[in-house]
């Protein structure tokens, strides 16, 4: 089930307040999905970027997939070119 944007906003604020970075990454990715489904590529890239950053920070295996996804949107270097 997809949450509304306002429900996502609240969940993100709660996750930030709790310092739960895995949850933050997951929720940002969910937000990216919502914007992408709406056809808002810029909005999707914005939230997927945040998901990527927090996934990187915690060493999540999702980071590679998010990087690839951002790359396909023209927003990030490809994983093969990363340093």
């Amino acid at each position: 089930m997809t949450r509304t944007k306002s429900a996502l906003d609240k969940a993100l604020v709660d996750a930030h307040n709790a310092g739960n970075k895995a949850e933050i990454a997951r929720l940002y990715e969910e937000a990216g999905n919502v914007f992408e489904a709406d056809g808002d590529v810029d909005g999707a890239a914005f939230y997927l970027t945040h998901a990527y950053v927090f996934a990187l920070e915690i060493g999540s295996s999702r980071a590679d997939q998010l990087q690839e996804r951002l790359h396909r949107l023209g927003r990030e270097v490809p994983p093969s070119k990363e340093l």
Binding site: L70, V77, L83
Partner: peptide, 27 residues
């Protein structure tokens, strides 16, 4: 973000919102 080996891994929004690369930012 930097790896523990010192590499610059990403530069979020460096080219504007949702754009994480820019030709003048050589990681």
């Amino acid at each position: 973000c930097y790896s523990l080996k010192g590499d610059l891994k990403t530069t979020p929004h460096v080219g504007g919102p949702g754009q994480n690369v820019h030709e003048s930012v050589d990681r």
